[in-house]
Each structure stands twice: as structure tokens, then as C-alpha cells.
Design a protein around this nucleic acid. Structure first.
Lengths: 138, 138
DNA sequence: TTGAGTGCAAAGTATTTGCATTCCA
DNA sequence: TGGAATGCAAATACTTTGCACTCAA
């Protein structure tokens, strides 16, 4: 896990620290997580690790292209690893559940936007709000 | 402008106030706006109107179905009127500009998600992040 | 008249920043 | 050793809430 981290850091002349390793690992383990959730996870192994460090590190990892985030809910950014298949997020407005869907579903959208507006879509950042099957059934 | 407001309020037994009229008007004028921007706009005509009222009113207008919001950027929700054509939002990561695109572009996406996941998409809430034509050209 | 709505101030939550200390290279 | 990175605490931003006053019905 997190093999790319060391080389990405070195390539930029940045330092490899335990905190950075732990934060990336937490994101990969949790799959979808807010900064708070990352903190809780990393503190199991490093209780003194600080929330500021989580914020700073998430931003760094994002710069390095190792994680991205999407805004799934009101204010809460949710981070996830860029390893694994591209996916987009389905956020249920009723129950708050977040599902993943294949990014393929959005390729046509991306193509249309490119054609109409010359806009290059980042599909991974896409959050679709709506109602999930379970909630719709009720 | 804002004809629907009075009847929507009365239908619920709520009161028609100048503040509510002004907030809705501001959203319709500004097209895309944060609570802060709404405040600035309404204060031109009602300097004493408070930010709390803006928040409360935006939430109410949303309940009434007269406005929606999307999370275009980090923490700032952006409100817009539900009058006019359905549209989705293209947010440029480089320059921060927000464009609108026809919601039609996302119909296929919505259909696919329904089919694969039984998920009912609210296209109006959709924010697509990426790079706009101008920034891509550089 | 009366209670929904507002303004104000204070509280709550999320995120960022300055600075002294730590520790990687 | 030197400076990047961290921990801590304080600052900032955003949003919500309690309460007394106002005003639409």
C-alpha cells in the first residue's frame, strides 16, 4: 500500500514522514472519508497526530495526485484514493448513504460538455445527488 | 419576478415579508450566489437585513422549491433560482469560473444510474469540476 | 392581538495559520 | 546541522441558535 508516496515525495524534494504515510494509508483503508475520519483512523496508531497535519497532508497528497476529494454533502469534503477504478459518487439525500458508480456512466456527459463548451470534466470529482433505490421504494 | 413566492407562502400558512421577497429577488438577480453575496445584494435596499435571515430564508425558499443550491467549491454553497431552464454547473478548477450547461447533457447519465443502481438523480444539483476552455487553451 | 419572523449576539463547527519544537536528509 | 514538517493554540470562516422585539394576518 502507498508505494507511490515515497517516490512522489522524493521527486519533489519533500520529506517522507510517518504522518504522511499514515494519512495516505487511512484514506486508502477508509475509501471515503472526511478529515475528521482520517484523524480518528490515524490516531489509532499515532495518537498525537494532529488535525492540522491531516489537513495539510490531505492537501499535499492531492497536489501529488494520490488522493482527490469530492463535495458529497453540505460542507464536508470527502477524500478518496486515486488508486483503483475511477468512480463517481451517488449521494442519497434521504439517508445520506454514498454509493459508488462506474465512471463510465459519465463519459457521455464528459463528451457532451467537451463538445458544447470545450470543458474538460474531472469525472472523479463528480457527486450526483438524488434518492437511492431503498429510499425511493418507501 | 418572484410571483410564485406569495402563493407558495400562503399555501403553507407562512407570512409574506419584505425580507423574503428581497432574498428571492437577490438570488434571481445574481443567478449564482453564496449567502454572503445575497446579503450584500439585499443590503442595498435593506441595510439592516441580517445574515441569519438570509440563511433562514434560503433554507425556506429551498423547502418551497423556489431555489436550490449546489456545492460548487470547498465550503461555499451556491444558490440559484429554480425558475428558468434546468441547468448544471461547470466549475473551473483553474480560474474558479462557473458556467452553466444544459441539463440535457446529463440525462443519459441519469438514465444509466437509474438502470444500474435504481438511483434517482437530481441533475440540478450537479456540479462538474474540471477545466474550462479558456484555461485549457493556455 | 398574537405568534411567526426578524435582528442581534453568542455559540458551534470546520478549517487555516503562526510559531516553537522536532526530526528527515 | 539546517530547514521542512509537525503539534499546539489561537485565529478565521461559515453556519446555527436563543431570545427579545417587531409586524403581518
Amino acid at each position: 500500500m502507498a508505494e507511490g508516496l515515497e517516490q512522489a515525495l522524493r521527486a519533489r524534494g519533500l520529506r517522507v514522514t510517518e504522518q504522511r504515510r499514515l494519512v495516505l494509508e487511512a484514506v486508502e483503508t477508509l475509501r471515503h472519508c472526511t478529515p475528521e475520519q482520517v484523524l480518528a483512523q490515524v490516531q489509532e496508531q499515532a495518537p498525537s497526530l494532529n488535525l492540522s497535519t491531516v489537513y495539510r497532508t490531505l492537501e499535499l497528497l492531492q497536489d501529488l495526485g494520490l488522493v482527490t476529494h469530492a463535495h458529497l454533502d453540505h460542507g464536508a469534503p470527502t477524500y478518496h484514493s486515486t488508486r483503483g477504478r475511477e468512480h463517481l459518487h451517488l449521494v442519497c439525500r434521504s439517508c445520506g448513504k454514498v454509493e459508488e458508480a462506474s465512471a463510465d456512466a459519465a463519459h457521455q456527459l464528459a463528451a457532451t460538455l467537451m463538445e458544447q463548451k470545450g470543458f474538460i470534466s474531472d469525472v472523479r470529482h463528480l457527486a450526483v445527488h438524488g434518492t437511492c433505490r431503498d429510499c425511493a421504494g418507501e
